[in-house]
């Protein structure tokens, strides 16, 4: 039986209305409360999210969910907050468009084990032009780096191949593997990201639709014997994030996703217009 913990939005005037359905789907774990709460959400889309996060760490919260952090912040500030969170044993999870999808966590081992033998890892995000939550291209690039990190890939030699108001292509490597990260904003249906890891004898693909609802990611692994479709998980990324946050806070587990976020922001800072 899990321990119910109080949850609230921290540091902004954001109405928690968007979070209530998520909290309501975890009734034995989370109950909404006024701040200060045990579990708090910090909105990473604001200009002051670093200050909000720092204040949240000082608020006595037992766990923090940093939602959709936007780029443009100083990576050193984030790294310093990671140290502060660790010193106080406060788990800080980062919720981002695709990395938080429960399929990423569930299928990581199936996918990540084959990555060293891959020749090409190709990430393509298509963002609906009419999506009311449409992120900026720099935010998409950061989300892609989060997604790669979540499956165990830290790109090296990151460079911007090209950038426009509608799309970008980033190239990178990881050992002998070529990485291509590209994104397009256009009339392309629901926003989504697809990671395709391709090798001479096998490949994996993960198609993730984002955190707004519980549409399951599509994960496949292909080898000479055929294609295996990995189980679908009808849980929204937001619910998965809050579930993990509750578990970490309740168990006292050390969870540090800020150090990775700082590293991804540093990578992004090296590639000009998308930083």
């Amino acid at each position: 039986m899990s321990t119910p913990m109080t949850a609230a939005v921290f540091g902004t005037d954001e109405d928690p209305v968007a979070l209530r359905p998520v909290w309501a789907s975890l009734p034995l774990s989370i109950t909404e409360a006024a701040a200060p709460a045990q579990l708090v959400a910090v909105d990473g889309r604001t200009a002051d999210w670093v200050a909000d996060l720092a204040a949240a760490l000082d608020s006595g919260a037992a766990g923090i969910l940093l939602r959709a952090p936007s780029p443009g912040q100083d990576p050193d500030d984030i790294a310093a907050l990671a140290v502060r969170a660790a010193s106080r044993s406060i788990p800080v999870l980062v919720e981002s468009a695709w990395a938080t999808d429960p399929a990423v966590d569930a299928h990581r081992d199936s996918i990540a084990g084959e990555l060293p033998s891959m020749a090409l890892i190709d990430v393509l995000s298509t963002i609906g032009a009419v999506d009311p939550q449409r992120p900026t291209l720099p935010a998409v690039a950061l989300d892609q780096l989060h997604l790669l990190r979540a499956i165990g890939v830290e790109p090296e030699q990151v460079q911007l191949s090209r950038w426009s108001p509608n799309s970008f292509t980033i190239v990178a490597s990881r050992g002998p593997t070529r990485l291509v990260l590209s994104a397009v904003i256009g009339n392309c249906g629901p926003s989504k990201a697809r990671v395709s890891a391709r090798g001479p004898g096998s490949e994996s693909s993960l198609l993730v639709f984002g955190s707004s609802n519980a549409r399951p990611a599509e994960a496949e692994r292909t080898d000479a014997a055929g294609t295996v479709r990995l189980p679908s998980l009808y849980e929204s990324a937001s619910r998965a994030a809050w579930r993990r946050l509750h578990a970490a806070a309740a168990s006292g587990a050390v969870v540090d996703q800020l150090t990775g976020l700082a590293a991804d922001l540093r990578r992004l800072a090296t590639i000009g217009p998308l930083s």
């Binding site: 090409l120 190709d122 292509t169 291509v180 391709r198 090798g199 004898g201 096998s202 490949e203 000479a224």
Partner: peptide, 10 residues
């Protein structure tokens, strides 16, 4: 973007 990869996999 032109992405091409030919390999033994079916």
């Amino acid at each position: 973007d032109l992405v091409t990869y030919m390999r033994p996999l079916w």
